[in-house]
Design a protein around this nucleic acid. Structure first.
Lengths: 237, 237
DNA sequence: TGGCGTCTGTGCGTTTATGCACAAATAGGG
DNA sequence: CCCTATTTGTGCATAAACGCACAGACGCCA
């Protein structure tokens, strides 16, 4: 089993990969490989969390659902992160839902094991807190972006973020799905996606989106993409 | 000097008030009372932070400024919190600006002193992390609220949040100021404020807003206000 | 008390997104 | 291979917010 070839390797998650040897050895027995499939709900809003998750090839959306059923994404977690920060932050639950947005592999760990290592106060704690700050930046930027930028710009941003996390140029998702992430109507996504397709940046059919011209997407996206990306790089190397 | 009568008392900040006696004694020598005046910039985006701040009667907005100069608020910190979470989260800086939104008192502490106590891993750390999670909820909710709710609803929410932090029914702020917080045009705020005034919830003149009918404001606000409030209560008691 | 700068009110036309209704295209199972 | 559920395309009336322009109102200070 190679270290990087696929998601079944622990070090495919960058938080785990960044651990010093002693911490890694303590945690390794508690890591359990799992497969996430598209659409699966990882945490329900307000539910107790028995495990935390370290995605490798999968990625997970953090969503909020309003009383009237409308939803919007607040953050996106992939191989650079962990799902379940509320546990070590001391809240036990969050009012958010976590849903698989790209199927693939991950590792899970019992909450207790994670907390034991966290409480040692070493590099593991340090890494998790820095990651949490990067996530805060992402959520903050989403708040501002939602307020100030157009659907088309936000779609570009979302496609780029997703493309960064996916290992392929072909993303599997419908306009309907994307509309729930961006918090807009399905038709709004269709119209925006058409424009991107006309300009040759993407092409799509029935739930499959091809990223054709990433540089062009980058030139159409709002500044938010770069802010989040560089802050992640700064904090997590 | 009474414990609660004014902002010059350390225990006016709820994080400090919740500390166990030993931690409190260690921190007390490092606490320095200061006065914040309206509009003052506490942290500039990306700047090094020499101090953290514990507001008592003041409150501070966390803002993001776009390249084109438009701004929006992502969070609001008052006597229940601390300004400068990036320090203990390990990031040292954030891409946000922190600005005084309601003048008043606060305590500041040198970063080093705060970090020393944080690294002990006791109740102080625990409190700060729980507070940070509450702040994450607030930011998340702002992200979703910005996407899904009207200016009028968001204005209600913002007035209620501010009213919770202020010790008075009279808020000192112009429509222009509020527009920078909500990320909308000044005229949009004027129109929305007019409607609230017509319905008798508030009254205002030239930079002074009176909260007249809080229950009515509560009946017009979106669910976001309650979500954030109850999550704060759950996490911070 | 007069003047000036700040704050608020108002009226456009325009843009962006919504809600709804329904048509067209496509994939996959029976 | 057809049928059906899903996905995407399109049109249109409406609503919300924007950008701009300028008028009026208020308060402070000279």
């Amino acid at each position: 089993m190679s270290l990087t070839s696929n998601g079944n390797e622990v070090l495919g998650n960058r938080l785990l990969a960044a651990l010093p040897p002693d911490a890694y050895e303590r945690l390794r027995p508690h890591l359990e490989p799992i497969a996430f499939s598209l659409g699966e709900v990882v945490y329900e809003s307000g539910a107790q969390m028995g495990y935390v998750y370290f995605p490798t090839t999968s990625h997970i959306s953090l969503l909020y659902t309003m009383i009237d059923g409308s939803t919007a994404e607040m953050g996106l977690v992939g191989q650079e992160g962990i799902v379940g920060i509320a546990l070590f932050m001391g809240g036990e639950t969050t009012p958010n839902r976590a849903m698989v947005q790209g199927g693939g592999a991950a590792f899970r760990m019992k909450s207790v094991a994670m907390l034991d290592e966290f409480k040692r106060g070493g590099e593991f704690q340090h890494l998790l807190l820095r990651y949490t700050q990067a996530l805060i930046t992402q959520i903050s930027q989403t708040a501002v972006c939602n307020r100030l930028h157009s659907v088309e710009q936000r779609l570009c941003r979302w496609l780029l973020m997703t493309h960064d996390l996916a290992q392929t140029d072909e993303l599997q998702m419908t306009h309907e799905f994307i509309s729930n992430m961006l918090g807009v109507r399905r038709e709004g996504v269709t119209v925006a996606a058409q424009r991107l397709q006309e300009k040759g940046m993407i092409s799509y059919v029935r739930g499959h989106i091809q990223i054709l011209d990433r540089p062009e997407l980058l030139s159409h996206v709002c500044e938010c993409y770069e802010v989040v990306k560089s802050e992640h790089a700064r904090l997590l190397g």
